[in-house]
């Protein structure tokens, strides 16, 4: 499991910019950003360095921020890479709450998954999927 930064935002002009500004001013670099939006509010999921520090900075700045454990899987950056992963999850009866992907420099991609249930990471690892750990994230 790795840590993802989650920020609750009202769906109003300028709110995302203010949150990102707060992270930027602490000199924390972001790798990926994914926003789930509804009519009234949005939830920003951010993949960044030192998410705990970022969360406390945002909380101090008046945001509702939290660190959420998610599973990150490194897959080859080629057609069918994600499809294979998702097919496995389905076959293993894992329900994916949300997912997002981003490509990294070495021709691979990182798929971030929030999955319901326990031992998902272990099952993926046993099936031969490359689970990304903290050190790897720091090296990005």
């Amino acid at each position: 499991m790795i840590s993802q930064l989650t920020v609750f935002l009202q769906n109003e002009k300028g709110h995302l910019a203010r949150a990102v500004d707060a992270i930027a001013s602490a000199e924390i670099n972001m790798h990926a950003l994914y926003v789930a939006d509804t009519k009234d509010f949005g939830v920003a999921r951010i993949f960044c360095e030192t998410p705990e520090v970022a969360a406390s900075i945002l909380t101090d700045a008046g945001f509702r921020a939290a660190v959420t454990p998610v599973i990150a899987v490194r897959i080859p950056n080629e057609p069918g890479g994600l499809a294979r992963l998702l097919r496995f999850c389905e076959d293993a009866d894992m329900n994916i709450e949300y997912a997002y992907c981003f490509a990294v420099r070495d021709e691979s991609a990182i798929d971030v998954l929030k999955i319901e249930g326990d031992h998902c990471e272990q099952k993926l690892s046993e099936a031969g999927f490359h689970i990304v750990d903290h050190d790897e994230i720091d090296a990005l």
Partner: peptide
């Protein structure tokens, strides 16, 4: 928990 839209909704 603010991470899941479903829970908030």
């Amino acid at each position: 928990p603010i991470d899941e839209v479903r829970v908030l909704e």
